[in-house]
Computed example of a mutant assay.
Amino acid sequence: MSDKKTERRDFLFTASYAVGAVGAAAVVWPLIDQMNPDASVKALASTEVDISSVKRGNTITVLWRGKPVFIRRRTEEEIKEARSVKMEDLIHPEKDEDRAKNPEWLVMLGVCTHLGCVPLNDKGDYDGWFCPCHGSHYDTSGRIRKGPAPLNMEVPKYEFVNANTIKIG
């Protein structure tokens, strides 16, 4: 008879623990779930940009997550120039092919990697971008070539939705 009491007692302990665990999870879940971002924040996580009106050699600037994003439709000359640069000439070596999924389009954050200023387009010693704050020069691929900036301008995650639309984020 003592075996029966032991089995019953074990079952009651196990059932009590299971009910307690489910109750604790029911209390904790809303606390964890409220830390997820709301719909307005999720909407800012990505943006689609119509690029159909951008002509070769022009750059548009769009905002994504509160930061400027440069989208440049490069000319054949700019692409050739960016691809002909020797890696040993770069402060932060990165191939143009790795920075631009489609050679015609360059998508990058428009933020200088030195102190976060917004560089000027079609300026500087390398016909790319120039940051007037402290004199950083970027080439036609957004790579740092001269000045105090330590890194190339960042390329965000992006994809071509179709021939006229880029999704950033």
Rank of each mutant, 00 (worst) to 15 (best):
M1A: 12
S2P: 06
K4F: 15
R8M: 13
R8D: 14
D10Y: 11
F11Q: 06
F13M: 09
T14Q: 09
V27T: 14
V28Y: 11
V28I: 15
L31D: 10
L31F: 15
Q34R: 15
Q34F: 13
A39G: 08
A39K: 15
S40V: 08
V41M: 08
A43I: 09
A43W: 11
S46C: 06
T47R: 14
E48R: 09
V49Y: 12
S52D: 09
R56F: 11
G57F: 08
N58R: 08
T59I: 03
I60Q: 03
I60V: 11
L63R: 11
W64R: 00
W64S: 05
W64G: 00
G66C: 05
K67A: 10
P68V: 07
F70G: 04
F70I: 02
T75M: 09
T75N: 05
E76K: 12
E77T: 11
E77Y: 12
E81C: 04
K86N: 10
M87V: 10
E88Y: 10
D89K: 02
I91G: 02
P93K: 14
P93N: 07
E94F: 05
K95P: 04
D96R: 07
D96E: 12
E97R: 12
R99V: 03
P103W: 00
V111A: 03
L115A: 14
C117Y: 03
P119H: 01
P119G: 03
L120G: 10
N121D: 15
D122Q: 11
D125N: 07
D125K: 01
D125M: 08
Y126Q: 01
Y126D: 02
D127N: 08
G128R: 02
W129Y: 15
W129I: 01
C131E: 04
G135T: 06
Y138S: 01
K146I: 04
P150R: 07
E154N: 09
V155K: 00
Y158Q: 03
F160C: 03
V161D: 07
I168A: 02
